[in-house]
C-alpha cells in the first residue's frame, strides 16, 4: 500500500488528480450544454424556468457549485505543478524539433493544454461573474415563472450580451480553445488512469475528437445563433 500523500504527490498520482478532475469537469460541461440547449429557442420561458429550477434546489445547488470550484482548482493547480516540473526537465532547448509522426498524438492542442486551460480558467471567472452575478430581479430582469412566481429573466441578459459582437467573438474563440483542450483531454484522461487498451485506443481517441467537436460547436453556436437571430431566420424559412 502506498501512503496516499506519497501516491498523490508522485508524477503518476498527480496525473490521477488531473484526470479525475478533468473527466468530472467534462461531465459537468455535458450537463451544462444540455441545459443551455434551451437557449436555441427564441422564446426564453424554457431557459428561465430551467435556471429558476436549478436555483430552487437551494443548499444542494450550492454544494454542487462548491464541488465544481474544488474540481476547477484541483485541475488548475495540479496542471501548474506538473507544468513547472516539465519546464525544469529540459533546461537547454533543441535548436530543431520535429515530430516523427506515426502514432504520436502531438498536435497543437496536446502541446498547449496549459494555454487552452489557462484561457478557459480566466473565461470561467468572467463568465460566472457576468451571468450568475449579473443584473437580476432587482435590476428589473424579471419574467413570469408559473409555479415559481416571478423569476429572474436570465434569458434577456444572455440575449443582450450576445448582441455585442465583441462578446460573441470572445465566446467563439474560447469555445474553439475548449474544443482543442477536449480533443486531447478525453483520450489523455483515460490513458492517465490506465483505462485504455490497445484494442480500443484508436476508437477512444476518435470518440474523444467527436466529443470535442460536438461540445465545442454546441457551445459556440449559441452566441452565433442569438447574434444572427437564427431561430427566427431559419424557422421562418421553414415556414
Amino acid at each position: 500500500m502506498i501512503p496516499l500523500r506519497k501516491a498523490l504527490s508522485s508524477s503518476v498520482g498527480k496525473k490521477f488528480i488531473m484526470a479525475f478532475s478533468g473527466l468530472c469537469l467534462g461531465g459537468f460541461i455535458v450537463v451544462h450544454l444540455l441545459g443551455n440547449l434551451a437557449l436555441y429557442r427564441a422564446d426564453g420561458a424554457a431557459f428561465n424556468l430551467y435556471a429558476a429550477t436549478l436555483e430552487s434546489f437551494g443548499k444542494f445547488i450550492i454544494a454542487a457549485e462548491l464541488g465544481l470550484i474544488a474540481l476547477f482548482l484541483l485541475h488548475a493547480i495540479s496542471a501548474m505543478l506538473l507544468k513547472l516540473n516539465h519546464w525544469g526537465a529540459r533546461p537547454e532547448r533543441y535548436s530543431v524539433v520535429k515530430s516523427k509522426g506515426g502514432e504520436s498524438k502531438s498536435t497543437l492542442a496536446s502541446r498547449n493544454m496549459i494555454i487552452s486551460g489557462g484561457v478557459i480558467f480566466a473565461f470561467v471567472i468572467l463568465h460566472v461573474w457576468s451571468f450568475k452575478y449579473g443584473p437580476g430581479i432587482t435590476e428589473g430582469y424579471t419574467a413570469a415563472g408559473g409555479a415559481h412566481g416571478e423569476i429572474r429573466d436570465l434569458h434577456r441578459l444572455v440575449v443582450e450580451s450576445f448582441h455585442n459582437p465583441l462578446i460573441v467573438s470572445a465566446y467563439v474563440f474560447v469555445m474553439l480553445l475548449l474544443g482543442g483542450h477536449l480533443w486531447h483531454a478525453f483520450w489523455s484522461g483515460l490513458q492517465s488512469f490506465g483505462l485504455t487498451n490497445p484494442r480500443y485506443t484508436k476508437g477512444l481517441y476518435c470518440l474523444g475528437s467527436m466529443f470535442a467537436v460536438v461540445l465545442s460547436v454546441g457551445f459556440l453556436m449559441i452566441p452565433i445563433w442569438i447574434f444572427f437571430d437564427l431561430s427566427t431566420v431559419l424557422l421562418g424559412a421553414i415556414k
Binding site: S11, K14, K15, L82, N85, H86, G88, A89, R90, S99, K100, E103, S104, K105, S106, S110, R111, M113, H184, W187, S188, Q191, S192
Partner: peptide
C-alpha cells in the same frame, strides 16, 4: 524527468 502528458512522441 518531466511528467507524461500522453502525447506519444
Amino acid at each position: 524527468f518531466g511528467n507524461c502528458t500522453n502525447i506519444g512522441e
